[in-house]
C-alpha cells in the first residue's frame, strides 16, 4: 500500500438506496478507512440517489449490474436491498471476489455481531448483519449467558418507529423476525429464543426500544449487572447511542433488561436508532476488513 502522507481508503459500493443504504453512505463518508465508489439502486429518482449525486458520489439505477460492469470499482459491497434480492446477489459477489456485507435478513452468509465474532467474520467472503434487533439484543443475551450458562430460554421485544422501517424491512418482516431469533440463538448460544417485533407509528416517533427477558430461577443479579453494563459500554464504542434503560432486574422467574438506541441522526432523525445499530455494526466490520487490507490492523 502506498502512503501519501496518510493511508489510502478502501473503496466500497452500496446496493440499495433506501433508508439503510442512505444512512450507510453517510457513515462510510465519515470513515477514515472507507470511501464510497458506487451507490446503486433500482430507482433513478429515489431521494437517496438524488442525495448521493449532490455529494458527487457515482450513482447508478442498474443495481448490482453497475458493479458487474465495473468490478474493479470496489473491494467491499454493502447489500441493503432485500433478503430475496441478496440471495440472487450473493453468488455474483462471490464470483467477483467482493467482501459482501449483507444488511438484509437473508442469512446467505455467516451471521455477524461485531462484539461477538468480528475477527471470524472478516475471514469470510459474505457476512450477514442479522437484523437491528439481533445487533441490539445478541450481545446482551451473551452477557447473560456468561453469568448463567444454563439459561434455556430468552425472549426479545424490539419496538421501532414506523417511520424508520422502510419498504425493504416491511417486505422482509417475516425473515426479519425469524433471523433475529436465529441470530441470537447462534451467536449468544441460547437454546431457545423468541422474538417479537413491533412497529409503532406514534408521532413524535419512539426511539428503538428493546426488552430482553431471560428465564433464570435464581439469578446472580450483581454479576448480571456487571456483565450487562460491561457489554453495554463495549457496544457504545461502535454504537454511541446505545444505552441501558432498566435492569437487569428479577421479577417472577425472569430477568428483564431494557435497552434503547438513540440514532446519530445521519439520514433519518435520532429516533431511527434501529438504522444506526445495524449500520454502525456493518461499518465496524468494513473498517476492520479495510484496516487489515491496508496493513493497519
Amino acid at each position: 500500500m502506498s502512503n501519501q502522507g496518510t493511508h489510502n481508503k478502501i473503496p466500497v459500493a452500496i446496493i440499495g438506496t433506501g433508508n439503510i443504504g442512505s444512512d450507510l453512505l453517510v457513515k462510510v463518508l465519515r470513515s477514515p478507512y472507507l470511501t464510497c465508489a458506487m451507490f446503486t439502486g433500482q430507482h433513478p429518482d429515489s431521494p437517496g440517489i438524488a442525495r448521493a449525486r449532490e455529494l458527487n458520489i457515482p450513482t447508478s439505477a442498474d443495481s448490482i449490474a453497475a458493479i458487474e460492469r465495473n468490478p474493479g470499482c470496489c473491494d467491499i459491497v454493502f447489500d441493503a436491498t432485500t433478503a430475496e434480492a441478496h440471495r440472487r446477489h450473493a453468488p455474483i459477489l462471490a464470483r467477483l471476489k467482493k467482501f459482501a456485507i449483507d444488511m438484509t435478513p437473508s442469512q446467505a452468509g455467516g451471521m455477524c455481531v461485531p462484539l461477538l465474532n468480528l475477527d471470524d467474520s472478516i475471514a469470510k467472503q459474505n457476512v450477514n448483519m442479522v437484523t437491528c434487533g439481533g445487533q441490539a439484543n445478541a450481545p446482551i443475551a451473551r452477557a447473560i449467558m456468561a453469568v448463567h450458562p444454563d439459561t434455556q430460554y430468552m425472549e426479545v421485544i424490539s419496538s421501532i418507529a414506523s417511520k424508520s422501517a422502510g419498504i425493504g424491512t416491511r417486505n422482509n418482516i417475516d425473515e426479519y423476525t425469524q433471523t433475529t431469533s436465529d441470530g441470537i440463538r447462534a451467536l449468544a448460544g441460547v437454546p431457545q429464543v423468541k422474538t417479537i417485533i413491533i412497529l409503532n407509528p406514534a408521532d413524535p416517533p419512539y426511539l428503538m426500544h428493546n426488552t430482553l427477558y431471560a428465564e433464570i430461577k435464581q439469578p446472580d443479579l450483581p454479576a448480571l449487572e456487571r456483565s450487562v453494563k460491561d457489554t453495554v459500554e463495549k457496544i457504545r464504542e461502535y454504537v454511541p447511542g446505545f444505552k441501558l434503560l432498566y435492569g437487569p432486574v428479577q421479577e417472577s422467574g425472569r430477568v428483564t433488561t431494557i435497552t434503547e438506541v438513540v440514532g446519530r441522526g445521519d439520514y433519518l432523525p435520532t429516533y431511527a436508532g434501529n438504522l444506526d445499530i445495524i449500520n454502525c455494526a456493518a461499518v465496524a466490520v468494513a473498517e476492520r476488513y479495510a484496516k487489515k487490507k491496508l496493513g493497519l490492523a
Partner: peptide
Amino acid sequence: RRKAVGGQEDLILDVAM
C-alpha cells in the same frame, strides 16, 4: 398518551416505574 400499540406490553413496566 404514549400511543402504545398491541404487543407493547413491556412499555407497561416503563410507565409504572
